[in-house]
Design a protein around this nucleic acid. Sequence first.
DNA 1: GCTTGAACTTCAAGTGACTTGAGCATCTAT
DNA 2: ATAGATGCTCAAGTCACTTGAAGTTCAAGC
Lengths: 144, 144
Amino acid sequence: MSHPRIGELAERTGTSAPAIRYYEEIGLLRAAPRQAGNQRVYGRDDVDRLTFIRRCREFDFSIEQVRTLVGLLDNRSSSCLDARELAATHLEAVRAKMRELRALERSLVGFVADCDAQCAGGPGPDCVILGDLGKRCGCGPVVP
Amino acid sequence: MSHPRIGELAERTGTSAPAIRYYEEIGLLRAAPRQAGNQRVYGRDDVDRLTFIRRCREFDFSIEQVRTLVGLLDNRSSSCLDARELAATHLEAVRAKMRELRALERSLVGFVADCDAQCAGGPGPDCVILGDLGKRCGCGPVVP
DNA sequence: GCTTGAACTTCAAGTGACTTGAGCATCTAT
DNA sequence: ATAGATGCTCAAGTCACTTGAAGTTCAAGC
């Protein structure tokens, strides 16, 4: 278990094997040494590093941001402040995205509520629902 | 103004001209008629339809979902209930995404707070920050 | 009529972060 | 020895467009 091949590494880190090869290709993981038959062999460090990468990705850091973070790990000097700054910037982006999503959620709730009020109880003269988005739809006959 | 070309249509709907051509190519917009010199000419209906499409996209509906919604517009029968169902499903997806982002936000806040506590005030023996994500980083010398 | 420059045309390639598929080699177990 | 799981490389596909190149057409001024 101390020298996993790509499949086990994938399983232990929640990654797919092609994704691991992709990370190697773009230089996020070192090129793994190969055993006799050309298959990649990994070590404990690779498990840690890939776990780190995956967690960053779950945190929605972009690959380039992860590259920076991994660089901080590799190059151990004044890492924390740099990492803090990156995280703070990223936090702002996440919050902006959340504000967007909240607005979106409100709109959708309104959309569904309008549907229930206008249409589910019986079609009105013309439907407001799709009209919210574009012009008008025909959930009942359009009576001008 | 009643027969805009692609640039004006783009401006009036908040779309880019290449995006409009792309929508035409994938069949979300009809192939626009051309004027003498082969340039696309649009009408009032196109403005409405594209506005609808853009609004759906702002609501984070995928192109395929928009295709369905546009289909409901085109085919006016029992539209509302179908649209409601699609919106409700989409709302669930949006809420799931928000839950993810909230968790992410909490983690990042913790990350930044740890940075401030552990590192900004002076490096501790070793840093917890990147350790939260992977193993440990070296914002100070690692003393085993 | 001529010229300039903005707006238009098509087609191809690029983006991010992988996934999917084809076709072959290797490993492990029986 | 053989079968099936796992691995390899390389190419193409995904999504929703954007960007760039190279050529045409339009509108305005002279």
